[in-house]
Amino acid sequence: MIIPALIGSLPRPVSLSKKLEQYYLGRLSEEKLEEAYREHTRRAFENLRRAGIRVITDGLYRWDDIFNPLIRFIDGVEVNGLFKFYENNFFYRSPVVKGELSLGENPIPEWLNVALEIKEEVYPGAVLKAVLPGPVTLAYHSINEAYESLDELAEAYAGVLAELMKELPVELVELQEPALAAELSRATREKSDSVSAETAKALIERLEKVKALWVVTYFGTPRGFPEGVILNFDLVEGTLPENYRGDLGVGIVNARETKMERRDRLVDKLKPLLRKHGKLYVTPNTLLDFLPESVAWRKLKLLGKLGGE
């Protein structure tokens, strides 16, 4: 069985950005901004239903990048300037870790409640998952001024995430973990320390005890496989290792190029995987932020057509 799914974000519609800009200038009230979020989320869920995407996210419309605003709600973190997100012309605000980490008050569970409510109205058949950055990726993209090692920092982030995950009103949590597959690029900055493969695996498996996990990797091939999770592989820029036996998601449409994939070629690619694994999720290979909105939706429709094959 093939199940089309979304991972991470949808491109933020320009119309929503305009509302945000107005809000920052003090020309739009918080209530009106909230209305805009809800309206755009509703539209996104309707489009996802039409496209036949069965497992969905809220599109991260309230997020600027996979770390923000979450890191603003973590005590011990300050938010720094912009860094290149891997080798993309896309920039994230980086966390600077100044002290011991703990979860502060945050609206993320409430945001998901809102999304769930809208989903029940317009697309009750879909499964909604929460999206959070994983502990390993958070550690790599931080400027660490407080912890002895990156292993310890990743562990501290895992503690914060576990606490947050308990409060979320959904059963399934997606962890964005590109760092499991892609080294921090020298284009971002020279890295000095790393998270060991054992720590990475152990931390994710510990989080899996809190909620069911969908671990999304991209821009390479993950070197280790945490157990008991759905693991997403990027088949555009990485490969699916022969020895992987767990639950499987495959990123098969390229979210960094506008060229449309041919459906028959995708089907040919999926056939052997389906024979071996029986059930698989098909997804874009990475965040859809890298595409113009119109093309992102065309690619999602293509994914939707693979469902059930």
Binding site: R12, S17, D64, D65, Y92, R93, T258, L291, P292, V295
Partner: peptide, 17 residues
Amino acid sequence: FYGPVRVWGNAYFNKAA
């Protein structure tokens, strides 16, 4: 041109193909 692509926050540019 298919439309704007976000670079960060609410900053976009018209990425050509």
